[in-house]
C-alpha cells in the first residue's frame, strides 16, 4: 500500500503538523513490514529546513488485541519504555508523539527513523560493518547493563515472568501443539530441575534483544528497537537470548549474534554496572531460548496444518529439528565438554 491513497495519510499529516516543529505535511509514506501485532510505517515530515525521517508504529487497523500470544505490551507502554531506556543511556529512537484518541489513527506512536542496518546477513558479512563487528558484543553488554538498571518504580504495568513461569508457559504451548519431541521433553525436564531460585532479582528485560532488533551502523550499535515483548524478568535472559545458535546465522563460533564472544558481552555488562554474570542462569536461559524457538517452529507447522498455506510457514515447521541438535549439544554433549 503506498502513501497517497492510504487512509492514514491525511490524519497522519495532521498529527505531524501539530506535533513536529515546523512540519507542513508528510511525504514518502510506505509500509515497512507487518506482523500480527504491529504495523510499521516509514515517512518523512516535510519542514522548511528539510525532510525529517520518521517511523510510525501502529496497531494493525489501529487497535491491538492480545498480539503475540498475549505477551505484547500496548503501544503506549512501548513508547513509555523507550523514553525510560533513553533516560538511562540506552540508544533508542526518540519518541516524537504518542497517539491520542483525537488523532484518529488508533494506538501508536511516532519516533525518529534511525539510519543503519538490521539484517544479520549484511551486518555479519558486509565490509561496511567490518570495524563495527569486533565492538558489538561489548556494546551489547554495556547497553543491557543500563537497560536492566531502569528504576522499577517508574515502569508502567508489565508482565512479570520468572524462569519457572516461562518454562511452564512454553510447556503448555508445547503440549497443546500435541506432537512428540522427546528432546524437547528432555529440555523441559532439565529446565524444571535447573530453574533459577525464586529469590532471583528481577529487572526490566527487553525480551527480544537480538539481530533484527538492533540498528547497526559502521561505528557500532545505534539503537535498540522493538520493545513490544518487554517485561519484568531475569536479566540473564537478555544476555542469553542473543547467544542462541539460530541468531548466529552460521557463525557458530561467534556466540553473540554471530559477531562476538561471550567474554566481551559479559565484560561490557559487568563494567557498565550490570552486576555479576551468573553462568548457571546464563545456561538455563540459553537452553530455554533454544527450546522457545523450537516450540515456535512447531507453532508454524500447526498454523500451516490449520490452513495457512504458506510454503515458508510449512518449511519453518521442519526447523524445530535444528533446535533439537542445539539442545542435544547443550544437554548431552558428544565431546564430554558442555557447550
Amino acid at each position: 500500500m503506498s502513501g497517497e491513497n492510504n487512509p492514514i495519510a491525511a490524519p497522519l499529516a495532521e498529527v505531524v503538523q501539530k506535533h513536529i516543529p515546523g512540519a507542513t505535511g508528510i511525504d514518502a509514506l510506505k509500509r515497512l513490514s507487518g506482523g500480527a501485532s504491529q504495523e510499521i510505517w516509514s515517512f518523512d515530515a516535510v519542514t522548511p529546513s528539510g525532510a525529517v525521517p520518521l517511523i510510525l508504529r501502529r496497531a494493525p487497523g489501529g487497535f491491538r488485541d492480545t498480539g503475540r500470544s498475549g505477551t505484547a505490551v500496548p503501544l503506549e507502554t512501548e513508547a513509555r519504555l523507550i523514553n525510560l531506556a533513553a533516560e538511562v543511556g540506552v540508544p533508542v529512537p526518540p519518541v516524537r508523539h504518542v497517539m491520542t484518541e483525537e488523532d484518529g489513527i488508533g494506538q501508536g506512536f511516532i519516533m525518529d527513523r534511525i539510519p543503519g542496518e538490521t539484517l544479520a546477513r549484511k551486518i555479519l558479512r558486509d565490509e561496511e560493518f567490518a570495524e563495527a563487528r569486533p565492538k558489538l558484543a561489548r556494546q551489547c553488554g554495556e547497553v543491557l547493563a543500563r537497560l536492566h538498571k531502569v528504576d522499577k518504580s517508574k515502569l508502567p504495568p508489565l508482565r512479570v515472568a520468572t524462569g519457572r513461569d516461562e518454562v511452564e508457559q512454553y510447556f503448555k504451548t508445547y503440549k497443546e501443539l500435541d506432537y512428540p519431541h522427546p528432546v524437547f521433553d528432555l529440555a523441559f525436564r532439565w529446565l524444571r530441575d535447573n530453574a533459577p531460585p525464586d529469590s532471583t532479582e528481577l529487572t526490566l528485560v527487553h525480551g527480544d534483544f537480538r539481530n533484527g532488533n538492533l540498528m547497526i551502523g559502521p561505528e557500532g550499535l545505534r539503537a535498540v528497537l522493538d520493545w513490544e515483548i518487554a517485561h519484568v524478568g531475569d536479566p540473564m535472559a537478555d544476555l542469553s537470548w542473543i547467544c542462541i545458535n539460530p541468531w548466529r546465522f552460521g557463525n557458530i563460533d561467534m556466540p553473540v549474534g554471530g559477531f562476538g564472544l561471550r567474554e566481551d558481552l559479559f565484560a561490557g555488562y559487568e563494567a557498565a554496572g550490570g552486576g555479576k554474570v551468573d553462568p548457571a542462569r546464563i545456561k538455563f536461559w540459553e537452553v530455554l531460548g533454544t527450546l522457545k524457538w523450537g516450540v515456535m517452529c512447531m507453532g508454524m507447522a500447526s498454523a500451516f496444518l490449520k490452513g495457512d498455506r504458506s510454503v515458508e510457514r510449512a518449511t519453518i515447521g521442519r526447523r524445530s529439528s535444528e533446535t533439537e541438535v542445539d539442545l542435544m549439544r547443550l544437554l548431552a554433549p558428544l565431546t564430554g565438554k558442555e557447550q
Binding site: P182, V183, L186, N245, R248, G250, N251, I252, R318, R319, S321, E322, E324, V325, D326, M328, R329, A332, L334
Partner: peptide
C-alpha cells in the same frame, strides 16, 4: 537413541545447519 534420531532428522531437514 536421542542423538541418532536427532542427527537423522537434521540429515533430512537441514544438513547445512551449523549445529548439525
Amino acid at each position: 537413541h536421542l542423538w541418532e534420531t536427532t542427527l537423522t532428522k537434521l540429515a533430512i531437514d537441514q544438513p547445512k545447519y551449523s549445529g548439525y
